[in-house]
Design a protein around this nucleic acid. Structure first.
Lengths: 347, 347
DNA sequence: TTGTAGGCGTTATCAA
DNA sequence: TTGATAACGCCTACAA
């Protein structure tokens, strides 16, 4: 008795003496029915406690309103923030999101995507770096990349180069004797590399002494900490009594460095200026609010979804043939001057 | 030419001179076919570049392998950590996750759930506090709650009471003159309330001086900071020169308090011991590693998915009628002694 | 071991 | 304004 069969258009049709077709129309084009018919049907829906079954509709129409999202990890809050903003677009676009965390496993990621495709998802947003954009572009649905290698697919990225320049400019303004950028040895083709480029170019064209340090960071807090401790040690010898301006690849690493310095001195010596990247919550929650080159995460996410939805719609219009070149959108970063570099807020 | 029709069982059948049924069997019960037939079909699949369409299978069988996940927010890393672990169970159980962030909006959450149901999802994992467990229990699919009010639905929770006791015990061991617990004014029926209960009970039964402070925390870092600053001010008057042991509702708040103290003194005075809750990354990345009552997030998530999957399977077996009472699983917390209370690591 | 025929719950195409 | 009928792609009796 609990297990009553689900109510379908057929039941509504029988109950109302209309045909299935009319019931369907009630949902998809109510205007084409008499007011009276509409009332009859809507009453019947109530009475029979009808619940729609979108699976059948998908089978008939082929469109699911599902989007796959592939995130690499949650160690950097940037990713959970972006995901947060992506999910928030549900209110705007109505697409539902199937989320996957790749953890850098090629095979697992491929398998998952293949499975998603079998569910007829309509598009993908990819933040993981696992699969090449060439491979991604081969899938039969639109793909939008965010802050990753994007040669063959559409993408939305922060203007990383500008971010790098702005960081360098701030450190210059603070009259640092040497400008240092710490990053991981990343590939030239991923957008984040432009942070290095922008920083270097600015230093060079302004004749500023600079150094770029590339280390295998971003593994874990403990590992990063050990690496940065080493670097601090080197600085003691190399840059004794000089004013050092450090620009780091992300807020997490910047926070780790800041912690090391504060633990050593109990405060942030005038000799150090620190700038992170992302404006993730980490930067605000640091022992001293971190200056940071902020990514506009909400805009990144929103633009990505919009771009994807546009592509999906275009494809429905049959514009599949024209292999139009991938669109790359750029979102400007915003520099936040806080306690660790040029900020107003004192400890 | 790009837009070639999708290959179906019908095409394979025609190509191989088998019937659709046989093709279907190839996928669902290959053993019932000749080795030879299997080869013929598998070759045909290759040749025709077949891709399965699970939507059709869902329509025929009714089961999607989709689970809906509803998270309240990402401000507390606890939630993104749990989500991370939930998503990771894909490798084990094969269920795909449709993720939603409720942001505390009842109507939006209801709408989303209704939509998910129309997609025939098989179960839900709910971390948001928006809808009552009574309402959740009315949905026609199994629901598992994690760390939220759970009277009428299955759930997986940390043993919060034990956590509260352990925190108090550690502060006692550290010979604090007064034990203080700071939390939000939460409802008695949510599991996190037991942190308060456990803490209070331990203090009372051991005759320890204690205070419980309830404030509207967890809004944002800035708001929390202001509130905690006030509290610190009160302590100056009230507990001058006493050793204060503070147990906070979560690592985020604990970190905020720690920052305030460090900014004031440049170090953590012996007069303060601080314990957080969750063992979220925040606790490790704090200026001094935070002692914390750790939730076993991986186990919480894994147990939740397993519990849900069990329910889903039970339901398939027709055991819908027996309204068995909700199962509540408990995962013990683990106390981490770190820099801010009883830990080995020195700054 | 394989095939036939009907069903899953919608939408789409014609016709009336 | 409404209806019959045929998709959509797969699964499952029941038959052979």
């Amino acid at each position: 008795m609990e297990e009553k069969k689900r109510v379908t258009f057929d039941d509504i049709a029988k109950y109302t003496k209309f045909s299935k077709t009319t019931i369907s129309r009630y949902f998809n084009d109510p205007g084409s029915l008499t007011e009276k018919s509409q009332h009859i049907i809507s009453d019947a829906l109530e009475k029979l406690d009808y619940h729609e079954n979108r699976v059948a509709r998908i089978l008939a129409m082929g469109k699911t309103e599902f989007i796959g999202v592939i995130v690499p990890e949650f160690y950097h809050r940037f990713y959970s923030e972006v995901l947060n903003q992506i999910l928030a677009t549900y209110e705007t676009f109505g697409y539902k999101f199937l989320v996957f965390i790749g953890n850098n496993n090629k095979e697992s990621e491929r398998r998952y995507i293949r499975e998603l495709l079998s569910y007829q998802i309509e598009g993908m947003i990819v933040l993981s770096h696992t699969l090449s954009s060439r491979e991604l572009s081969k899938f039969p649905i639109p793909v939008v990349a965010i802050e990753r290698e994007d040669q063959f697919v559409c993408s939305v990225n922060t203007d990383n180069e500008s971010g790098g320049r702005q960081a360098a400019a701030l450190l210059q303004e603070l009259q640092c004797d040497v400008l240092i950028h710490i990053n991981a040895p990343i590939d030239h083709c991923i957008p984040a590399y432009d942070r290095i480029r922008g920083f270097r170019d600015y230093c060079q064209s302004n004749g500023l002494p600079y150094e770029i340090i590339l280390r295998e960071l971003d593994r874990s807090y403990e590992v990063d900490q050990a690496i940065l401790k080493d670097i601090l040690g080197e600085w003691d010898r190399k840059y004794a009594h000089q004013k050092i301006g450090v620009f780091l690849a992300n807020d997490t690493t910047a926070n780790t460095l800041l912690n090391l310095i504060i633990r050593r001195y109990g405060y942030l010596p005038k000799e150090y200026s620190i700038i992170g990247f992302d404006n993730s919550p980490t930067s605000r929650e640091a022992i001293i609010p971190l200056s940071t080159v902020g990514q506009q995460v909400d805009r990144l996410a929103h633009e990505a979804v919009r771009l994807l939805v546009d592509q999906i719609k275009a494809r429905k219009q049959g514009k599949t043939l024209a292999e139009s070149p991938p669109v790359h959108k750029i979102v400007p970063p915003i520099l936040f001057r806080r306690g660790t570099a040029g900020g107003m807020d004192v400890i």
